[in-house]
Nucleic acid binder design. Structure first.
Lengths: 112, 112
DNA sequence: ATTCGTTATATTTGTTTATATATAACGACT
DNA sequence: AGTCGTTATATATAAACAAATATAACGAAT
């Protein structure tokens, strides 16, 4: 066959983008590295882009998703809140379900 | 509440993009106007972009989706094939089902 | 043969987007 | 007070993308 169906989903809150695939990927990288700059480097995006993204995420969310500390031991860092972890978990779950659902729907195209 | 979930889906065939929302919109406009240039104008996109899109669609599809005639009465024109019409119908159906599915899934975020 | 409005194609211009660079602010620690 | 590596922010540069422009090809009709 070689038909494929692909999707991008994102969640808005009060008309601001809260979560999308890129943002979730970044949040995971922050969880892995403990640092926004290292997370950006690991995803090969500029620090500015990464900063803008998590700034937007935190401004859109009703509770903080990351806690960014500046100065201090190690110069600072960033880490996920429990709320942030549950958000990315829910997003991943929805995204995976969407893929499975669309794979089934794709039969409608294959049969044409 | 004011949470919203949004999505973009697209279908690939042999690793080329066959259909997406923009392409389907363009195909519908061709069906309405009988002309690629008029369709482009109605969607406020450049003629080149429109042409590139339907060229890509026809190259990706296993059967022609539009028939473009050049010269002749009226200078030419473009129209959908029956295959093309059934494709956009299937796409719209899948897309709508996806929206409904995601709206249900969104509860997982709202409850956080 | 000429006109017509369209498709087809290349080239140029402009706009938006992303990247790179630079600098300041910060706070624990020595 | 000085050092450290980070976040925060602005500005400048580069790259990607979209739009505008120009021109040729086409074929039915006159």
């Amino acid at each position: 066959m070689s038909y494929k169906i692909k999707s991008r989903i994102w969640i808005e809150h009060e008309d601001n983008v809260l979560l999308g695939e890129g943002r979730v990927q970044l949040l995971k990288a922050i969880d892995d590295t403990g640092s926004l700059s290292k997370a950006a480097k690991s995803l090969n995006i500029s620090y500015k882009k990464a900063w803008d993204l998590i700034d937007s995420v935190n401004k859109s969310a009703k509770k903080p998703v990351t806690i960014n500390s500046i100065g201090g031991k190690g110069g600072g860092g960033a880490e996920l809140t429990e709320y942030g972890k549950s958000l990315i978990h829910a997003f991943d779950d929805i995204n995976k379900n969407c893929w499975d659902f669309l794979d089934l729907q794709l039969e409608k195209i294959k049969s044409l």
